[in-house]
């Protein structure tokens, strides 16, 4: 069952990510991104990270996607026009893909293919994550809160029309 779910979600994840970059209409790209985020939340759940799956849906599928769709509506973006391919660009792109693939492949240790599944380790429910956040990681947690405040002020300053 776990294997079937993994392949199903992995297929959904990759195909919707491809849909984001091949669709010319911005709204279709945004919908592809939503599907990708939901598939990734499913994978998080499959990995036992239920709290992160919930956060992924709240923050990404909720807040971030609303922001993207709002901006698409506000700027009234049109579909991108087709531009001819340049041979130099295609060659450089293929070279990048090959080098990146080799790099990623070498980065995966051989032992990764033997560590299967999941014994019972530390419980990964929201309570233990929250406990870590407020004990060992309380300083970064406060820092992130400060960052959110700075971002809020920054967005207000940027959106004022007379700057």
């Amino acid at each position: 069952m776990e294997g079937f779910l993994f392949w199903f979600l992995a297929f959904g994840l990759l195909s919707s990510a491809v849909a984001v970059i091949v669709n010319r209409s911005p709204v279709a790209s945004a919908l592809g991104l939503v599907t990708m985020i939901l598939a990734l939340a499913g994978l998080f759940g499959l990995l036992g990270a239920y709290f992160l799956a919930a956060v992924q849906v709240w923050v990404y599928a909720g807040a971030v996607m609303v922001l993207f769709l709002f901006i698409i509506m506000l700027l009234d973006l049109k579909a991108e026009e087709v531009t001819p391919l340049r041979p130099l660009g295609v060659g450089a792109g293929l070279l990048t893909i090959v080098l990146l693939g080799i790099g990623f492949w070498r980065a995966i240790p051989a032992s990764a293919w033997e560590t299967s599944g999941a014994g019972a380790g530390e419980a990964s429910d929201a309570a233990s994550i929250g406990h870590l956040l407020f004990s060992a990681y309380v300083l970064p947690f406060e820092g992130v809160g400060l960052l959110l405040l700075i971002a809020m002020i920054g967005v207000i300053v940027l959106s004022k029309s007379d700057v």
Binding site: A10, L13, L14, L43, A107, A112, E114, G117
Partner: peptide
């Protein structure tokens, strides 16, 4: 499903 599957994905 091993760790390698997730890393390749």
């Amino acid at each position: 499903v091993t760790l390698g599957h997730y890393l390749v994905l």
